[in-house]
Design a protein around this nucleic acid. Structure first.
Lengths: 223, 223
DNA sequence: CTAGAGTTTTATCAAACAGTCAATATTTCG
DNA sequence: CGAAATATTGACTGTTTGATAAAACTCTAG
């Protein structure tokens, strides 16, 4: 019988192995070229199997992509899920930033996969963003608002705060080539991420205005 | 005679018009799908001309892409170019952030074009990054270091500071779909950018740690 | 007006591409 | 074992894609 996901069918050892290999190869290709830029041929080659054999497990290109997204989204949102109302605000936020940065370091392909998709208008996962991402962000934004009202962190738009954490951390995965060009070869990947962690801690905690200087520069008017 | 860029040939009115239309259409397609995902057919259709006619002006797909990049890079780096050692540090930085945010608002396609290219490993512009972007960043990082030594801004790695300005501002162009899903339809694009500007000002100037609270939370250990 | 430069179109090509099919090989399990 | 279920392959189809050639058309300078 053909491998069908509709019926509650037990998966073969070979099925499990091959789907794993396919999804890993697909992650490689989709994250590097986007949905349209990636080809089934290259995914099959990278997975070490013939194209028809790959299509035996996933009937269409889009099926591979959707399986990938479904498998990775939860993992990707885990750090935000873990943001806890009970903990102390600043350590809790720092912990979130640190986790996101670790994700960028350890799973750059996943980061680029999502970046590619969003960048290209999220045509295939927009619904997922509305049904999964939006409620989660709303929930966590509420926690942040609580902390702001209690005066435990500065009062800002919590959703923009989340955006800035996403963008600054994922930048090190998504724009890695550019980061490397600018930072040069000295200090390996590990060093770069340590430096990034140190910098982001300062930025998010204290910003750039020096603490000591009293007669500081005057505030500039709004946009 | 054929349109050739090698000789210093005066351009026809038609040439100027058509190249303009092609580059605009190409910006649309390349920024939305990346180099491999975009097709000459769609660019030609979007530019309102036949594919062979388009290929009369640009012989190969890559030529269109390179012409686009060349035309846009300077404009894209303009805000950083404008960062001036003479001005007061904090207003100068705020001005830079504001300009970058305005670019993200007014030229989102350009932002996405570069994002797509870097995301996919910058295979076509890596050299350009090394020869143009790197020296510029080095120069401006030196200015930032000067301000830090003078105690006019907090001491951080200036290159990571620049990364964070790039990522937070360009996020509003590159991840626009996601931003819209999370912020919802209320408040138009203009409102979103006002909010972003306000938030980023707070973040970069003061960070999240509240000023008044004395017995603040303890610092969390490094990564 | 007209010759030649410049522009556009029609027709075409080979390669790359997503996806199908029937035949063959392999694994699983009673 | 041996039959059914599962897995793999080669050959193939129709389409899309980047690119070319040559003929036909249009514009412009003299």
């Amino acid at each position: 019988m053909k491998a069908r996901a509709t019926e509650t069918q037990r998966k073969t050892r070979i099925q499990i192995e091959n789907e794993e290999r396919i999804l890993d190869a697909a992650l490689e290709e989709f994250s590097a070229h986007g949905f349209r830029g990636a080809t089934i041929d290259r995914i099959a080659e990278h997975a070490g199997m013939s194209k028809p054999n790959l299509l035996y497990y996933f009937r269409r290109k889009q099926d591979i992509y959707e399986a990938l997204i479904a498998r990775l989204l939860d993992k990707w949102l885990e750090p935000l899920q873990a943001l806890d109302a009970v903990g102390d605000p600043l350590p809790e936020l720092q912990s979130y930033i640190r986790r996101k940065l670790e994700m960028a370091r350890d799973f750059p392909r996943e980061s680029r996969l999502f970046a590619n998709e969003i960048l290209q208008g999220a045509p295939r996962i927009k619904r997922l963003l509305e049904s999964e991402l939006k409620p989660l962000v709303d929930e966590k934004a509420e926690i942040l608002r609580g902390w702001m009202k209690a005066g435990q962190i500065n009062t800002v738009d919590p959703r923009h705060l989340i955006f800035s954490i996403w963008s600054t951390t994922q930048h090190y995965a998504d724009f890695d080539v550019q980061v490397q060009v600018i930072l040069g070869p000295d200090r390996g990947a590990a060093g770069r991420f340590e430096d990034a962690a140190r910098y982001l801690e300062t930025l998010f905690l204290d910003g750039l205005r020096p603490k000591d200087k009293a007669g500081g520069t005057p505030r500039v008017r709004d946009l």
